[in-house]
Design a protein around this nucleic acid. Sequence first.
DNA 1: CAAAATTACTTGACAAAGCAAGTATCATCC
DNA 2: GGATGATACTTGCTTTGTCAAGTAATTTTG
Lengths: 168, 168
Amino acid sequence: MPETGHKLDMTDAPAFRQTRRSLPISLLRAREVVMGPIRDMLSDSGVNEQKWRVLRVLQEKGPQELSQVAAEAVLLLSSLTRMVGPMVAEGLISRMTPPEDRRKTVVAITPAGLALVNAHAGESAAILGRIEAEFGHNRLEQLLDLLEDLQRLDLRSGTPEAAQKARR
Amino acid sequence: MPETGHKLDMTDAPAFRQTRRSLPISLLRAREVVMGPIRDMLSDSGVNEQKWRVLRVLQEKGPQELSQVAAEAVLLLSSLTRMVGPMVAEGLISRMTPPEDRRKTVVAITPAGLALVNAHAGESAAILGRIEAEFGHNRLEQLLDLLEDLQRLDLRSGTPEAAQKARR
DNA sequence: CAAAATTACTTGACAAAGCAAGTATCATCC
DNA sequence: GGATGATACTTGCTTTGTCAAGTAATTTTG
């Protein structure tokens, strides 16, 4: 199985990192902490976390194709597809098909959507401010730098699965 | 331009941090990257990400109450409730109600569950090793330190919601 | 230019997240 | 010691995640 085959003895302590120092779990736990107050903020705004991300992306980057929005907002395209309808119905975004390529759907934030986002800008800034105050400005920037770098890693190279992707 | 900042224009909204530098979104994106190879590993292990976290927690901390497991594995209690049945059925964990408090449910990892975890210890270590190799040992440790500290922040103090908790 | 890819979404099916409400069990307080 | 309150889950319901398939609109090719 493991071609690396260093240890054959299954009974000796598995080389697991404590969950507290496990990268995936740490990222999850850290996120829960920062999302706490943000969820409080959103709970009385009428939108959930995902819709908020969509609005933030559209506000920041302007009208975009669904695929782009999905990538920016870290959503699957299929999830985004299913939330566009309701968001249009709520008047938060508008949708149009560009005539030059009718496969695409471009969505844009509406004035109402923008108003919603702006209505929480102050509180949002306050939350970030509290995080920065407790965590330290420099450490926060450092953390963001590290996370940004981490996002750029290509962890698939060399894996068997990479072949699948590489084939095409 | 003057930063006196008393414009009434709503369009000059309080500055949001670019989504690229948004802490919640960065944590999400970073996690997507590291989960890639881990999902590959789990896909042929028969357990999903959440069940894997439950097993890891039980393996590391021993038998625990559901609430504790949920907190450690970063799962909602209701989600955990719904996965315990299947996991017991699969023979990965066992469940018992302590006679001294019959409200509780204590779960423990079974030998089969432990075997499953150990069976992937090598591959898991290899994945972490690849991350460490590409990202750098020191930077990884630094990131884990920062994330660990972030988890300890109490962001609720001073918020209206804190009152709920403070009422104790 | 018609057949064969490719692209950009959509839809289906099922597990899991998230939130609200409900149900037993303890624990407390007159 | 029975009502009140707090715990520790459970259950219901809607939305989202995830993966597989499907569809319509371009592009590319022979």
